[in-house]
């Protein structure tokens, strides 16, 4: 990939992020009420987006090949269990990733 392409990606990511963060300040100047659909979507969309991203991250897993799906599934489960049990973000991410890397190495 070229540096020009990269710059465009970085620019898009930077501008969309700032746009989303600044939009409420532009739209709701002077205390205008927030439409219900907007607050409803905002409350629920993050959870749909995270589920989508999890699937996106696992898109290259091959469910016909054990060395591919077993580490992904087991490490995902370990991450969830660690998080439900201890609720420490760094621990859950470290633990899940360590299990994944170890399993890739063994299988």
């Amino acid at each position: 990939m070229t540096a020009g392409n990269m710059l465009i990606y970085v620019l898009i990511a930077s501008l969309t992020t700032f746009f989303v963060r600044v939009l409420p300040f532009l739209v709701f100047q002077g205390g205008r009420p927030v439409p219900h659909f907007v607050s409803w979507t905002g409350k629920n969309l993050p959870r749909a987006a995270m589920a989508m991203l999890v699937v996106y991250c696992l898109k290259d897993v091959q469910f016909t090949a054990l060395p591919s799906w077993l580490p992904a599934i087991l490490a995902s489960l370990v991450t969830v269990v660690l998080h439900v049990r201890y609720r420490k973000m760094v621990l859950s991410i470290c633990g899940g990733t360590a299990v994944y890397m170890a399993l890739l190495h063994i299988l």
Partner: peptide, 8 residues
């Protein structure tokens, strides 16, 4: 998109 609501 979730950042919309932090701004609010």
């Amino acid at each position: 998109a979730r950042h919309l609501f932090y701004g609010l």
